[in-house]
Design a protein around this nucleic acid. Structure first.
Length: 505
RNA sequence: GGCCCCUUCGACUAGCGGUUAGGUCACCACCCUUUCAAGGUGGCGGCACGAGUUCGAAUCUCGUAGGGGUCACCA
């Protein structure tokens, strides 16, 4: 079987985590079977339509590396891939259902429907369209439509019996047809609803496997009935468990409870490899239990029977952990440095030699969780006029003598390579007869303005003799000036703080 | 509320009749250590409940409870 899957996002706002999640599984399933993966834009809701959204969804997929074989961007044999451009197709199919008496026009206004629901509520009945327009004669229906009266087209669902749907993960699910309402297929504005558009497009585009979120299970009988009405073969339905909010409610992922925008994770410095890997773990596991694997490895090992049906809670903490693991262990240094370089550039950092970056990234990577952390931690590698934080000041206060000695010692050191520097420092500490920390912590503070930073030897070597001498000198004059408080007491804003920081230098 | 789906440590999960119920995150302790990390070792902690099937159930069946989804001219 030639497998075809699709993802059908609605362009209504920020690219959603859930779209990435379902996209991943559709992509992987298709690739696993040598099939095609389609991205179709479901823009049939004009009221929620967001013009920028489609582009951002495409960009998200591109960033994740889930490249569709067919889409609004790359085209394909079933163009167009934007539902708003396929209106004639839906109209055509609705006409067919109308002609075959499998659907009917309904002329109720929004107010009438509202009233109907209120009455149902009063009587304690289940709410839902009661089929009141079913009995309209075709003559009356045609006349009223011809006269320009607005109408919708509804599916004529069976009044009794059951509809069986098969979910590949759950088996057969049976619905009583009385539970299935005469849903709207075509809205009064001429746009199709999801039900009609998805079924028509999935069929026309040759979709063989519909992998979507669990929330669609209860509308699957509608789709099954539609396939039957058209005498089309139904695709295989696979309903993935719904991602849940990390709070106590356990409701489906919502932007009010969690940041669900993929763009936002990207901006935070989460890398696509990590996000994809984390999402893969939501409901699926590798046969060998490995938790870290690439998209390619997932494709190589994927099977539906390893999907678990429990509702997975999206845990940003573990996502960050996985991201950190990728940054420190899994991404090759050169590759990582390329990505960090861009961020350093936009942070306004300047450097002469890219090898400098390689060293910085190398020592910083065990200490970061996101790409952005590199920028937050690397300032002192690029700026000489940094301020000293409170802890650093304390270290400096107790280190004047050592810094003076080391300034002298370093100045006499001819080769500033790792071994020479390391030997010098160790010899010096030894001859002082004190703990390493006594000496190295003030030195670290002098070099970085912080009490927490990478190994001092690494810092010395990476910064190089010139900067080391300059920074020790600067720290000594700062100590001599009595460690002035470089933070203004006045509660004014950042502008002043920056200015004062420079003055402190 | 009706209907539908789901149920193993706090979270993600392995398990597919016989296991001291395994791993990962988080948390805690210890080790390493010039700080912070990283790393190493260990710990805490779970089969929702009740019947039944079986020599034997986390695993199969039924029921109960709990959670979620869905009941739009939104997807």
């Amino acid at each position: 079987m030639n497998v075809v899957t699709r993802i059908a996002p609605s362009p209504t706002g920020d690219p959603h985590i859930g779209t990435a999640y379902i996209g991943l599984f559709n992509y992987v399933f298709a690739k696993r079977h040598g099939g095609r993966f389609i991205l179709r834009i479901e823009d049939t809701d004009r009221s929620r339509y967001n013009a920028l959204s489609e582009e951002r969804i495409l960009a998200m997929m591109d960033w994740l590396g889930l490249d569709p074989d067919e889409s609004t961007a790359v085209g394909g044999p079933h163009s167009p891939y934007r539902q708003s451009e396929r209106l004639d197709l839906y109209r055509e199919h609705v006409d067919r259902l109308l002609k075959e008496d499998k659907a009917y026009r309904a002329f109720e206004t929004a107010e009438e429907l509202e009233e109907m629901r209120n009455e149902q509520k009063r009587k304690g009945l289940d709410p839902g369209y009661d089929g009141r327009s079913r009995c309209l004669s075709s003559q009356e229906s045609d006349d009223r439509a011809a006269s320009g009266e607005p109408f919708v087209v509804r599916l004529k669902t069976p009044l009794d019996g059951t509809t069986r749907v098969v979910d590949a993960l759950r088996g057969e699910i049976t619905f009583d047809n009385r539970e299935v309402r005469d849903v709207v297929l075509l809205k009064s504005d001429g746009y199709p609803t999801y039900h009609l558009a998805a079924v028509v497009d999935d069929h026309l585009m040759g979709v063989t496997h519909v992998i979507r979120a669990e929330e669609w299970i209860t509308s699957t009988p509608i789709h099954t009935l539609l396939y039957q009405a058209f005498s089309w073969e139904t695709p295989v339905f696979v309903h993935m468990p719904l991602l849940r909010n990390p709070d106590e409610t356990r409701t489906k992922l919502s932007k009010r409870k969690l940041d669900t925008s993929v763009d936002s994770y990207r901006e935070q410095g989460i890398i696509p490899e990590a996000l994809l890997n984390y999402l893969a773990l939501m409901g699926w596991s590798m046969p060998d239990g490995r938790e870290f694997f690439s998209l390619q490895e997932m494709i190589g090992a994927f099977s539906l029977d390893r999907i678990s049906l429990g509702a997975p809670v999206f845990d940003p903490k573990k996502l960050r952990f996985m991201n950190a693991k990728y940054l420190r262990d899994l991404i090759p240094l050169e590759n990582l440095t390329r990505r960090v370089k861009t961020l350093f550039e936009s942070a306004g950092f300047a450097w002469e030699d890219d090898d400098y970056l390689l060293d910085i990234v190398d020592v910083l990577r065990p200490r970061v969780e996101t790409l952005n952390d590199f920028v937050a931690h690397a300032g002192y590698f690029f700026e000489d006029d940094f301020s000293y934080d409170d802890q650093a000041k304390k270290k400096l206060a107790s280190g004047q003598k050592y810094l003076e000695d080391l300034e002298r010692e370093f100045s006499m050191l001819e080769f500033f390579d790792y071994d020479s520097v390391d030997d010098l420092v160790h010899d010096y500490v030894q001859e002082q007869g004190v703990g390493m920390g006594k000496v190295l912590q003030p030195l670290r503070a002098a070099l970085t303005g912080r009490a927490q930073a990478p190994s001092v030897t690494d810092l010395l070597v990476i910064l190089g003799k010139r900067k080391v001498m300059q920074r020790i000198g600067r720290a000594l004059s700062y100590i001599n000036a009595g460690l002035p408080d470089d933070k203004p007491q006045r509660p004014e804003k950042a502008k002043n703080a920056t200015k004062t920081r420079h003055e402190a230098a």
